[in-house]
C-alpha cells in the first residue's frame, strides 16, 4: 500500500511520518481489543474450574474452604483467575462507559474510577488468597 501511495500524486513527496502527523495518537491501537480476546479465552477453563470447585465446596464449612484456597495449585489458579477476571472486566466496563458517557471529562473520570475500583478489588482478592496460603 505504501509503495503505490508514494508513486501517486502529491503523497509522493511526503514521508510516512508526515502522512500520519495530525491524525491523533494511535495510543493502544488494537491492544485493548486483543487483550479482551486473549483474557476471554484464558478465562474459559479458569472460570469452569472455579465453578466446578465451588459446586464441590457447596454446603461445606470454613475449614474446607480455607484448606481448598490454601492448596498451592488452587491458590495459583485463583490468583490467575483474579488477575484475568478483573482485567477482562475493566476492559469490558471501559467500553460500556465510553459508549454512553459524554462529555469527555465525565467519561475519563468514570473510566479512571472504574479501573481504580477493579484494581482494588483484584488486590483485595489476591491478598486474601496469599494470606490464607501464608497461614496454611
Amino acid at each position: 500500500m505504501a509503495m503505490t501511495d508514494m508513486n501517486n500524486g502529491p503523497a509522493a513527496m511526503r514521508t510516512a511520518l508526515g502522512r500520519v502527523r495530525g491524525l491523533g495518537s494511535a495510543k493502544g491501537g488494537t491492544h485493548h481489543w486483543w487483550m479482551q480476546r486473549v483474557t476471554s479465552i484464558a478465562l474459559l477453563p479458569l472460570t469452569l474450574w472455579f465453578v466446578v470447585s465451588m459446586i464441590g465446596l457447596a454446603g461445606t464449612g470454613y475449614v474446607d474452604a480455607v484448606l481448598w484456597i490454601g492448596a498451592p495449585v488452587n491458590a495459583v489458579l485463583l490468583l490467575a483467575l483474579i488477575a484475568l477476571t478483573f482485567h477482562h472486566m475493566a476492559a469490558g466496563l471501559q467500553v460500556v462507559l465510553e459508549d454512553y458517557l459524554r462529555p469527555e471529562s465525565k467519561r475519563m473520570l468514570a473510566v479512571l474510577a472504574m479501573k481504580g475500583a477493579c484494581a482494588l478489588l483484584a488486590l483485595a482478592s489476591a491478598v486474601a488468597v496469599i494470606r490464607i496460603v501464608a497461614a496454611a
Partner: peptide, 26 residues
C-alpha cells in the same frame, strides 16, 4: 457482562471473608 461484573463482588467477599476468619466466613 455488567451483571457478572457486579457478581464478582461475591467472589471478593467470599475470599476476603475466608481470609478474615470463621465469623466473617459464616
Amino acid at each position: 457482562g455488567v451483571a457478572w461484573s457486579l457478581g464478582t463482588l461475591l467472589m471478593v467477599w467470599w475470599l476476603v471473608a475466608a481470609a478474615s476468619g470463621e465469623e466473617a466466613f459464616a
